[in-house]
Computed example of a mutant assay.
Amino acid sequence: MNKKNRIKTIILDFDGTIADTKDSIIQTIQATLDELGIQRANESDIKNLIGLPLRETFVRVAHLTDRNMQEKAIALYREKYNQISLNTVKLFPDVKETLKELHDNGLTITVASGKGKEALLNLLDRMGIARYISLVFGEQDVKNKKPAPDMALLILEKTNSGPQETLVVGDTVYDMAMGQEAGCITCGVSYGNHTEEQLKSRNPDFIIGKFAEITGIIGGIYQL
């Protein structure tokens, strides 16, 4: 890669990258299916689909093909999620400190998530990291959601950043696909919802095992 480029912007996924939300998502999916009177889904199937839009998740894990049922499931999920997430979501180690360091070094930090915007903003605020985030995009903000590149392209436009000045960090192959299709540098995190082997199948530029290693990537390969 071109060492004269400087990383200006970071695009972070939320679920499985910034915060451990696996239990909150699984519990809310199952509670939603319970209320709809539908058989509970396989937990490993839910885990592998974290990062995709809710509609697609319900189609895949519960075979909800009726549009009205999909809308009802999504509404119920959003209604239940805020309460369930109160005691089930936590930041991964060193996230807050790393975000502060990156922010203080002048990088623009953004979040691109398949999560609903309201829940996303509430969680960022509750966890005390909203102050470090310049832009937040949830599933309602683009027509074509991950793994499509639309959200990353929107962030490039809003921040006036070039693709090779932008690092996309996520825990799933959907994040890697989004970043690669937008021409960005990509970094997978192996502690989230997809395994290192799954991430390697997308050939990201980097794979890290701890969130704090982002600063090493930026400082070691580029000028921080």
Rank of each mutant, 00 (worst) to 15 (best):
G116K: 04
H63T: 09
L36S: 07
L199S: 06
D125R: 15
G220N: 13
I221L: 09
Q164E: 14
A148E: 12
E35P: 06
E101D: 13
E71F: 02
Y132K: 00
L154G: 01
I74Q: 10
P149V: 04
I208P: 06
E71S: 10
K96H: 13
P163D: 14
V111T: 06
D15S: 13
P163C: 10
K90H: 13
D13T: 12
L54I: 07
G138W: 04
S44R: 08
E71R: 14
N87S: 14
G138H: 03
N68D: 14
H103Y: 14
K115P: 10
F58T: 05
P53W: 08
Q164L: 15
A31C: 00
Q30F: 01
E197Q: 13
T57N: 02
A130C: 03
V142C: 12
H194A: 00
E56P: 02
A31N: 13
N68F: 12
N42H: 14
N87D: 15
S161D: 11
T88M: 11
L64E: 08
Q180W: 00
R67M: 12
D23H: 11
C187M: 09
A19Y: 02
T17D: 03
E71K: 15
K96C: 04
K72S: 08
N144C: 08
I84T: 09
I74L: 00
I155M: 08
G183Y: 01
A130Q: 13
L153D: 10
I109K: 06
I133D: 01
T28D: 01
P204F: 06
T88G: 06
G162W: 04
N82G: 05
F58C: 09
L33K: 04
L156I: 00
I18Q: 05
G220S: 11
E43F: 03
I11R: 03
F58P: 04
N122A: 10
L123V: 05
I129A: 05
S161L: 06
N160D: 12
L49G: 04
S113T: 13
E101S: 12
L224C: 11
R55W: 00
T28K: 01
T215D: 09
I208Y: 02
I84Y: 05
D34H: 11
I74W: 07
G216P: 00
D15G: 07
L76E: 11
K3E: 08
G51E: 00
I25W: 00
K47C: 01
E35G: 08
T195C: 05
G183R: 04
I185T: 03
